[in-house]
Write a protein that binds this DNA or RNA. Structure first.
Lengths: 241, 241
DNA sequence: ACCAATAGGTCTACAGTGTAGAAGCGTCAA
DNA sequence: TTGACGCTTCTACACTGTAGACCTATTGGT
C-alpha cells in the first residue's frame, strides 16, 4: 500500500492566473505581522496562500524586496495631516504617529531601520518634520541634521519598546540589579522601584518635550536681537524664497 | 584514481584539548566584526579556527548565546570613567562613547538592540547616565524614564549611522527627492543641498545639546522657588538617603 | 596500576532556508 | 496554426542551526 509509486502525485491544481502582487503582499504582511521576521519565510507564505514559493519570488524579486514592500505598507498606515503653523505640535504629532506604528506592528517595526526612505508615505511624514524644524527658526544646516536625528530617535524608541528594552523591570532583572555593588551603582539601585513601574509613554513624551525646549533655546540663542519669538507664519512663507 | 574509497578519509586530527571559550569567542568576534551577522555562521567560524562547528555550540549553547557574548565583548571596549559632579559632561561622555562604539564595530552594533543589558560593562555605563539624571535635579520618576530614553537615542543613532540612514544624500536619492511635488515637499527639497553634505556628528551633538538644555529647563520649571541652579554636589550626596 | 566517569571534540542527520534554472502550461497576437 | 510571452511550478543546490549519538583523552578514585 505504501509503494504504488506510479501515481503522478497529483499535479497540484495550478493556481488561478489572477494571483496578484497585491494579494501576495497582503498575505505576506499578515504573516509578518503575526509571526515576525524569524517566523517568516517565502515557503511558509507560499503554503499559506496555496501557491508555489517561487511564484512569490517571481513577483517580488527577492525576500528582501518583499520585506521592503511590507515596510512600505506599514508606513502607509500612518496618517498625519499636512504641516501646520505650529511646529511644536507638528513634531509631537509625528512622534505620536511613529510610536503608534511601532505598537500597531511590533513584529515588523525594525524594518524601518533596515529600509530607510521606503516610499511616498515616508516623504510626506518627513516633510512635516523638515518644515517644523525650519519653522522653528533653525538655519538649514541645523534643521536638516536635527530633523534626521529626531527621526532616529523616533525609530530607536519604537524599536526599544518593541524589543523589550523599555519594558518595566522584571523580577530576574531586578535580582541582577540588586546584586550590583551598592556604592558603585547607587543610582541604579535607587531607581529600581521606579523601573518596576516604568511609564514608557511618559518617558517618550518627556524626551520629545525636552528636545523641543532645547531647540527653542537654540533658536533663541542664535537670534538674540529679537527677544520675541519668531512668527511661524513668516517662516513658513520663507521656504523656497 | 578517483575511487580508492577505502581510505578512512583521515580522521581530522582532533583539535588539542586546550580550545578555550575565550579563543572561540575572540575568533567569533573577529568574524562578526569583519563579516557582519549575515556572513556569520557557526560553520564558518568552525572552519576559520579549524574545529568542528558543534564544538562551538558545546561551549556556547546556541548561536544566539554566542552573539550575546559578542555584544558583551564589544560593550566592554567602551571606557568611560566614573561619574563626576558635572552631569552634563557625563551625559556627553556616554554619548560620545556609544557613538564611538558604533563606529568601531559597525557590523555588530545592532546587537545592542537585540540584547539589552548584556553585562557588567553595561551597568557601569548606565549608572553614569542614571546618576547624571538625578544630579540634574530630576525626580526619580523622570530620571529613570529620561535616562532610558537617552539610551534609546544613543543606540538608535548609532544604528542609524551604521545602517546608512544618516549618510549624506547620494545621487539616486537626490533624484528621488527632486521628483517630489515641489509644493507639498517644499522643505524637503529646500534641504537637499544640506543633506548632500550632512554632518552627522554635528547633528548628534546638537541633539544631545538640545536634550540637555530641555532637561535643565524642566528642572528649573519644577523648582521655581530657587532661581539659582541646584548644587550638583548636594544632589550627588542626596543619592540613597 | 587499574577502571570508570566525565568532559571535550566530532560525526551524522534532520528540518529548515533563499533562490537559480529549467520545465510546464495558458493565453493572446499574428 | 504557430509562435511568443508570461505566470506558475518543479527540481536542485548550497547553505543554515542544532539535536543526538559517538569517540576519545584526561582525570579522579580505589
Amino acid at each position: 500500500m505504501a509503494d504504488l509509486g506510479e501515481v503522478p502525485a497529483k499535479p497540484k491544481p495550478r493556481a488561478p492566473r489572477g494571483i496578484d502582487k497585491a494579494d501576495i503582499l497582503s498575505s505576506a504582511f499578515e504573516l509578518m505581522a503575526t509571526e515576525g521576521e524569524n517566523g517568516f519565510s517565502v515557503r511558509k507564505l507560499g503554503a499559506k496562500i496555496g501557491i508555489d514559493p517561487m511564484t512569490v519570488l517571481h513577483h517580488f524579486s527577492s525576500r528582501d524586496a518583499l520585506l521592503r514592500h511590507i515596510a512600505d505598507r506599514s508606513l502607509a498606515t500612518i496618517e498625519i495631516g499636512p504641516p501646520t503653523d505650529d511646529w511644536k505640535s507638528d513634531l509631537k504629532k509625528v512622534a505620536r504617529a511613529y510610536r503608534g506604528l511601532a505598537h500597531r506592528y511590533p513584529k515588523m517595526f525594525h524594518l524601518h531601520f533596515r529600509f530607510h526612505s521606503t516610499g511616498p508615505a515616508d516623504h510626506a511624514t518627513s516633510e512635516v518634520v523638515f518644515r517644523a524644524m525650519l519653522n522653528a527658526g533653525l538655519p538649514d544646516r541645523d534643521a536638516a541634521g536635527l530633523a534626521l536625528s529626531f527621526y532616529t530617535y523616533l525609530i530607536g524608541f519604537g524599536l526599544a519598546e518593541t524589543e523589550g528594552l523599555m519594558q518595566p523591570l522584571g523580577p530576574d532583572e531586578e535580582q541582577e540589579l540588586r546584586a550590583l555593588d551598592p556604592i558603585a551603582c547607587a543610582a541604579t539601585q535607587r531607581l529600581i522601584p521606579t523601573f518596576k513601574t516604568l511609564d514608557s509613554g511618559a518617558a517618550f513624551d518627556n524626551t520629545i518635550e525636552a528636545f523641543i525646549t532645547g531647540i527653542e533655546a537654540r533658536v533663541a540663542m542664535a537670534e538674540p536681537q529679537t527677544a520675541q519669538s519668531t512668527k511661524p507664519s513668516a517662516a513658513v512663507r520663507q521656504i523656497r524664497p
